[in-house]
């Protein structure tokens, strides 16, 4: 019995295509992360986050990416169940055949990555969508502009007594922000909690973004958190090593002439990408110590 009525190779091709898209995505994410390493108070990183959060092409790709992740997971689980069903009675002695490293654990490394993804989403991605509260960043000039607009209204006598008090409180709140709440170049208010954000910008202010730079710094000061991330990156490396070579085999591109090249490529990819990801939490943790 098959769970999906699709030729086995078609399913394999789908799995490969979805995986390949994710393979292409990873270097982008990694490159973005590495901006955090620049000692500029997070300016580069903030700019990249702003671009990724607001650019429309990126937003389209974001939806495609999420769909890819979802289908890759669902199809992977379905295939694993189908494959288990193909051998209802197992062997007494576990298989000792020489196999491609990592291939036997794809569903398990995938499972670890799924758990990691949930943790990662709760910590970072959901802050962007507003599902959880994080830390926020706003442009100082935008806050001032919003404040001045309100002040103008007040002068024209359009505001009531209660609003006046709120405006005063807002002014006090903006004045009280200093030191770690202001970016190095003075153009941003950073590391604001939801409360501080509402106090300084008012309740209707929409022009804020999550402050991933400071969120990352805060999260990666936690040893346990860094360990979880590093374990996930090891699983990622194993998953990628098999994944990269598999894509070529699945699409029939594995002619013997290139077999060695593909294998070396897979090893390099499976080391460089997780390492690139691992540098960020490690650096944050080490500079904190």
């Amino acid at each position: 019995m098959k769970l999906i009525k699709l030729a086995s190779i078609s399913k394999k091709l789908c799995m490969g295509a979805l995986g390949a898209f994710l393979l292409i995505f990873l270097p982008f994410h990694m490159g973005m992360n590495l901006c955090i390493l620049r000692d500029d108070g997070g300016e580069w990183y903030r700019n990249v986050c702003h671009f990724m959060g607001t650019n429309y092409i990126v937003k389209v790709f974001e939806v495609v990416l999420l769909a890819c992740v979802l289908f890759h997971i669902v199809l992977g689980i379905i295939l694993a169940i189908e494959n288990k069903m193909s051998r209802p009675v197992g062997y007494a002695v576990a298989n000792k055949s020489k196999t491609h490293q990592g291939s036997k654990f794809m569903i398990w490394t995938g499972g670890i990555l799924l758990v990691f993804l949930v943790i990662h989403f709760v910590d970072f991605y959901f802050a962007k969508t507003g599902l959880v509260t994080g830390k926020y960043v706003v442009k100082t000039e935008k806050v001032e502009k919003a404040f001045q607009e309100k002040a103008m209204k007040m002068q024209q006598g359009q505001l009531k007594e209660a609003d006046l008090k709120e405006l005063q409180a807002q002014y006090m709140a903006i004045q009280s922000l200093s030191g770690e709440k202001v970016a190095k170049n003075g153009k941003y208010f950073i590391n604001l909690t939801k409360e501080e954000l509402q106090q300084t910008c008012g309740k209707d202010f929409k022009d804020y973004e999550p402050d991933f730079y400071n969120m990352a710094k805060e999260k990666f000061h936690n040893n346990l958190f860094v360990v979880i991330y590093l374990l996930a990156f090891i699983a990622l490396g194993i998953h990628l090593y098999h994944g990269v070579g598999s894509v070529f085999q699945t699409y029939g591109l594995n002619i013997e002439k290139y077999a060695k090249t593909i294998d070396i490529l897979a090893v390099i990819y499976a080391i460089v990408i997780p390492l690139g990801f691992a540098i960020v939490p490690l650096k944050v943790l080490l500079t904190a110590m």
Partner: peptide, 18 residues
């Protein structure tokens, strides 16, 4: 041949190469 192979209950390939 692949259609028949699937019908007969053989599993999917995961490029394990055993």
């Amino acid at each position: 041949m692949i259609k028949k192979m699937d019908e007969l209950g053989f599993g999917n390939c995961t490029n394990t190469y055993a």
